[in-house]
Nucleic acid binder design. Structure first.
Lengths: 157, 157
DNA sequence: ATAAAAATCACCCTTAAGTATGAATGAGGA
DNA sequence: TCCTCATTCATACTTAAGGGTGATTTTTAT
């Protein structure tokens, strides 16, 4: 019972002990500097202890428990929207060339620029230019964004 | 040995040190106010305030927050297709942690590491480590591959 | 209580990706 | 024919991503 209390409040007890030690230190310093008034020191220490306790009590009483919200997503099946294929319209709007679309598809398959270059028997620099024009036309900045957008528009598989 | 003690009781020691600083401050103020004279009530009030604050701080630091679990059901639209959903099995095989999955999802949305870090209030380095572990677990080398694979396994939307 | 796993962050280094600019070539339309 | 555009490639630069190692802290499970 007592042991359990001790283990559970280990830190608080340690705090109390260190406080005691500090008061002793203060006492020692008091002697050193010959600035006296025992009653005053003790009084102050007492006040400090009491109000620390008050603070702790206040905090424990007033603090609202942290609420962890667990969101359970309930899946609801819904028909895949937008009908069969909004492909062609969107694709033409973007005005991508054959090569650019090819590069885009390979990007979506997770290939690096070098791998795309090897696959298409092109230079790495060429792939870079294609991808830059591609990003520009699709109004994105990264291949990951391009792939995401392209998939959402259904212009690639 | 000593080092271990220090690391283990770091918090308590920090409390002790800050308390010591506080007491020194009070000592100094005491000298000041004694010279000014008859500011006793103010002094006491000051101490009371400070130690109440200290107590509150201590309590908030030391007390483990009570956690209330609130379950909210949230309906989410899901595409009907995607076949028989090999989700959970595959997902568990990969043994991804919550964070890793979160990072993966944000990668799939085309965010850069920096943007993911900002979104999750984490360091860029943290995102890097998460993504490295992720790539390792998924047996891929690039974010684009990871996203592609994850989508094929239906472990992300 | 203690071990294990998850999560966080740092530092350093290498490689890939992205940016800017310029230029040559070839096919097809005006 | 002349012009446009797609395609190809280069050089040089900046930034982001990937990779390795180690440390601390928090959470979880035993």
């Amino acid at each position: 019972m007592v042991l359990k209390f001790i283990t559970r409040n280990k830190q608080t007890i340690l705090y109390g002990i260190s406080l005691a030690l500090l008061l002793f230190l203060l006492k020692w310093l008091e002697l050193r500097f010959i600035i006296i008034d025992h009653a005053f020191e003790i009084y102050i220490g007492f006040i400090a202890l009491i109000f620390t306790g008050l603070g702790i009590w206040l905090a424990l009483k007033l603090s609202r428990p942290r609420i962890e919200t667990v969101v359970i997503e309930k899946e609801v099946m819904v028909e895949k929207s937008a009908g069969p294929v909004p492909d062609l319209n969107e694709l033409e709007k973007l005005n991508l060339s054959k090569r650019e679309l090819e590069v885009l598809q390979l990007m979506a398959d997770g290939l690096s620029n070098q791998e795309i270059a090897d696959r298409l028997f092109l230079s790495l620099n060429t792939i870079k230019t294609h991808s830059l024009r591609l990003f520009s036309k699709m109004d994105v900045e990264r291949r990951t964004q391009a792939v995401d957008k392209a998939k959402k528009l259904n212009i690639i598989r």
